[in-house]
């Protein structure tokens, strides 16, 4: 039984195609990770799911209900923790939670019990009666989590919940998410941290340029990929030309399936090889061309490799190229209602 079903979603902002036929299904009770580089369409997907945005085409169902036709019953079931935290700086955290409770129509005594529980659980007692304007990033995140959880939603949607947080806050949030899952809450979270999705998610989808390019359990995705990974540098700082030459050279070695140049990491080379027996052959080939081996590492496939395989570039490369051509101010302006 799927709690969320997204089918062939299409969404454009002017000429920018943010979603381009995105489909995915999230089973009930699952912690589902949405992994993708900046600008791949994660936030757009989540905003459509949360009824904040209407898709240009495609279907959105939550618990069998059509989100576009019946947004109100979906809103009831759903807690949303947005990427950009919107708080009212003049209110205290407590007042904000009370407001939130009233917007979800909790009876006032139950609302206050819930708020007390969440203050306890998220350790907010020391500052919850202070004005939100004085909160740190971590405090805001916790407050936002609390407001998302106040009405005990069946489905919790989190957009990059730990971005910019210290390790301690991050692991506290992970802990909470595990707990919620064990209590039966379905969780959909987006992230561009590989480790986060790897550590948390039962199921995941990798999205790129508005489409799902791979989905499944993280372990299965890695297994399906097969082959071993090799990262290689011929000197500490290579340039693009040299790396490109080496790439051509190694591509023909027996047992090498794929070689790409990783720009994000100083033009190092990422290889997919059949197994570790290929390593000596790589060294021989480099020797013949009077090239040295500055560094070489060898590992089983990771999620980054899954991404690399599907898109032909590493997640970090995708981030680098995406962050250059976005106008964040303009986007937030256009996201206004």
């Amino acid at each position: 039984m799927y709690l969320i079903e997204l089918q062939e979603l299409v969404k454009s902002y002017g000429t920018v195609k943010a979603l381009n036929g995105l489909s995915l299904k999230v089973p009930n009770g699952c912690l589902y990770g949405l992994l993708g580089p900046n600008g791949s369409g994660k936030t757009t997907t989540l905003r459509i799911l949360c009824t904040l945005l209407a898709p240009d085409a495609g279907q959105v169902k939550v618990a069998g209900l059509d989100v576009v036709k019946d947004p109100r019953s979906v809103r009831r079931q759903l807690g949303y923790v947005a990427q950009e935290v919107a708080i009212d700086k003049i209110l205290t955290g407590l007042e904000l939670l009370q407001l939130q409770g009233d917007l979800y129509h909790l009876p006032s005594n139950e609302r206050d019990i819930r708020i007390a529980e969440l203050i306890e659980r998220l350790d907010m007692k020391a500052w919850i009666t202070r004005r939100c304007g004085s909160y740190s990033g971590g405090m805001r995140r916790r407050l936002d989590l609390a407001s998302g959880l106040l009405h005990q939603p069946k489905l919790l949607v989190l957009d990059e919940p730990t971005v910019g947080l210290d390790i301690e806050s991050r692991s506290a949030i992970w802990q909470l998410l595990f707990e919620l899952k064990s209590q039966g809450t379905t969780i959909l979270l987006s992230s561009h941290y590989l480790e986060e999705v790897e550590a948390l998610a039962d199921q995941m989808a990798i999205i790129d340029e508005g489409r799902v390019i791979a989905q499944g359990a993280p372990d299965d995705l890695k297994k399906q990929l097969g082959g071993d990974r090799v990262t290689l540098r011929v000197r500490e700082f290579s340039d693009e030309n040299e790396s490109e030459q080496v790439r051509k050279l190694l591509a023909n070695v027996d047992g090498v399936r794929q070689v790409v140049v990783n720009r994000a990491q100083g033009f190092s080379l990422n290889l997919v090889v059949d197994d570790e027996n290929v390593l000596p052959r790589l060294r021989e080939e480099l020797d013949r061309s009077k090239l040295q081996v500055f560094a070489l590492s060898h590992s089983r496939p990771s999620l980054d490799d899954v991404y690399l395989q599907a898109t032909g570039r590493t997640l970090m490369d995708a981030e680098l190229s995406a962050s250059g051509n976005r106008d964040v101010k303009l986007e937030s302006k256009q996201a206004m209602r």
Binding site: T51, D88, S147, A335
Partner: peptide, 16 residues
Amino acid sequence: DREFGFLNRLLVAPLS
């Protein structure tokens, strides 16, 4: 509220 995104918080809630 529109500019700071607070309106979105109201719009995801199941207001009657």
